[in-house]
Design a protein around this nucleic acid. Structure first.
Length: 547
RNA sequence: GCCCCCGUAGCUCAGGUGGAUAGAGCGACGGUUUCCUAAACCGCAGGCCGGCGGUUCGAGUCCGCCCGGGGGCACCA
């Protein structure tokens, strides 16, 4: 049992002793103002009503009933409207660092997932062009969410789904063909809905070099295959540059070849929730909360994207994923209700909230105070590669993750590129590098720091107590961020903790201090170094030893 | 018209699931270096948390209505 749990248990006993129900759950939080102590509870206020007594009076009674020793607190005081503030002995507080050192790279790991399988689907870009900034946000978000879940004991599969047969791919093939014919002397005729970026020209160029017997691209099927392969390869390179790896690429076409689409449509018809109108087959999704019934099979006999989408999510469930999380742009918002409705209509016991959606808002790229809209390569949008080339992978990751997905995001290229104090990424990495520097200069192998035989009571400086608390809170913090599927919380925590590190480092010295102090501070430095590295790792950002 | 997101400092945004005197980064202003990285630290200024009601001991946070901004409402993906 660690410090907080001990305190909570003791508080519960005290509450019961003064007449509260045995199932009270005392809430404990860090007071915003460190002068208020190390922990605070609002228990007296929440008990006021059921017990019919005044909060401050109850607070006094709770303190009187509390076994200080069992609770592990040095001091308990009543404040404000009825808060009880607790102060811990420095030795008890800082002694928690031993747990950090023992856990090492696993500090922050939890067991809430209990080994169950989770599927995180993200990016899922069709192979019709280079990845744009929005895909970048998805890649950063999805990868970090996957890492967060894995840290909490989920068995995570990172999945990329792509449409390899639809109308957009047809337009891609026709666009490349148009460039081939332009090359052969025809006037340029890119079809309606076609692609205009420079990369189309490059692909046409490459095709002409390889397919010397088909310089005009008359073999459209061959052009299509060639173009898809070229763009898939390009997207892979983009993702690799970003440090994102997928466990599985799922092809929409496989749903047809494996019979999953037919199977699903038959099951839906058997469910009795379908009807035909004007030659098209509908699913009555309004029975399951959608605001409109949806077409599954068009009048011309082909499927809408809706049906394979449902079939795809059935496979996720069948593949044993307890949770399926889809990271997508907010423009997909309209599809969430209908996919869930489709799964419900099957009546197979798939949970109502399956799959879960993490939708993110748009990204605007700013440079020199102006919005950047165009990339040379893609023509109409800014690519992930542009950003990585300009500001580096770590900065792109951080900037795309530092805001809540629900917020529209402004990516300030100038700030991300600046290698100085104003850039939060460097600020955090610098904190890690400085801590590493202590061990380098002191010629101490940080992995030998175990926390054994340390007198924790010497870590009594205010800056040390604040830093210690932040490090000890990390596991709960990560668990909450994972639970909420919100990596930006980690980004903010890192920035705050980095500040505590810099402040402490600036004010207090480690090497050359008297033995007990140096020993304790080395342990603190090691714990902070480990925790920062763990946090950066979750976001896919490097933790450099020196900068 | 309906659905989703957003509205907090000059700018970009946090605010740990309802708590005490609302925070950070950038920008502005002023300081700090014989010392493990000044890529750092300290100080100062800046607010009707879009508005009006409600819930309660207590609301930036929850509920309702309104006003602004963005996105979505296909037999396109």
């Amino acid at each position: 049992m660690n410090g907080v749990e001990q305190l909570r248990a003791a508080l519960t006993r005290a509450a019961v002793a003064i007449g509260a129900s045995p199932d009270v759950q005392p809430g404990l939080e860090r007071p915003r103002d460190p002068a208020h102590g190390d922990w605070a509870t609002n228990l007296a206020m929440t008990l006021a009503k059921p017990l019919g007594r005044k909060p401050r009076e109850l607070a006094d009674a709770l303190i009187a009933a509390l076994d200080r020793h069992d609770a592990g607190v040095a001091e308990a005081t009543v404040a404000g409207p009825g808060f009880i503030n607790f102060r811990l002995d420095t030795a008890d507080l800082a002694g928690g660092l031993a747990r950090v050192l023992a856990a090492g790279t696993a500090w922050g790991h939890g067991t809430g997932g209990t080994g169950r399988a989770a599927n995180v689907e993200f990016v899922s870009a069709n192979p019709t062009g280079p990845l744009h900034v929005g895909h970048g946000r998805q890649a950063a978000l999805g990868d970090a969410i996957a890492a967060l879940l894995a840290s909490q004991g989920w068995k995570v599969t990172r999945e990329f789904y792509y449409n390899d047969a639809g109308a957009q791919i047809q337009n891609l093939a026709l666009s490349v063909q148009a460039r081939l014919r332009e090359r052969a002397g025809d006037p340029l005729a890119i079809p309606e809905g076609g692609y205009h970026g420079a990369y189309i020209k490059d692909i046409a160029e490459a095709y002409a070099g390889e397919a010397t017997d088909d310089p005009r691209g008359d073999d459209l099927e061959r052009v299509r295959t060639f173009a898809v392969r070229a763009l898939r390869n390009e997207q892979d390179l983009d993702l690799r540059a970003f440090g994102v790896r997928f466990d599985r690429y799922f092809l929409e076409s496989s749903l047809y070849t494996d019979g999953k689409v037919e199977e699903t449509i038959a099951a839906l018809q058997a469910s009795g929730h379908t009807f035909e109108d004007d030659g098209a087959l509908y699913l009555r999704t309004t029975d399951f909360g959608d605001d409109k019934d949806r077409v599954m099979r068009k009048r011309d006999g082909t499927m809408t994207y809706f049906l394979p989408d449902v079939a795809y999510h059935v496979t996720k469930f069948e593949r044993g994923f307890t949770r399926a999380i889809n990271v997508q742009g907010a423009d997909h918002h309209g599809t969430t209700a209908r996919v869930r409705a489709g799964l419900q209509a099957l009546g197979r016991g798939i949970p109502e909230g399956y799959p879960e959606y993490v939708l993110h808002q748009m990204v605007t790229v700013m440079r020199g105070g102006e919005e950047v809209k165009i990339s040379k390569r893609a023509g109409s949008y800014v690519t992930v590669r542009d950003l990585i080339d300009e500001v580096g992978r770590d900065a792109v990751r951080y900037f795309l993750l530092m805001r809540k997905g629900d917020s529209q995001l402004v990516f300030d290229v100038d700030l991300a590129r600046s290698q100085s104090e104003e850039n939060p990424v460097y600020y955090i990495q610098m904190a890690h590098a400085r801590l590493s520097g202590i061990f380098r200069v002191g010629e101490i192998d940080p992995t030998t720091i175990t926390g054994a035989a340390v007198d924790w009571s010497v870590l009594d400086q205010p800056e040390e107590r604040e830093l210690v608390k932040s490090l000890l809170d990390w596991p709960d913090f990560v668990a909450a961020a994972a639970d909420a599927l919100e990596p930006h919380r980690v980004a903010n925590w890192l920035l705050e903790t980095a500040r505590l590190v810099h402040t402490w480092y600036h004010k207090h010295h480690v090497l050359g201090e008297a033995e007990p102090v140096m020993r304790a501070r080395l342990a603190l430095a090691r714990a902070a170094q480990l925790t920062l590295a763990n946090g950066l790792g979750l976001l896919g950002i490097s933790a450099p030893e020196r900068m």
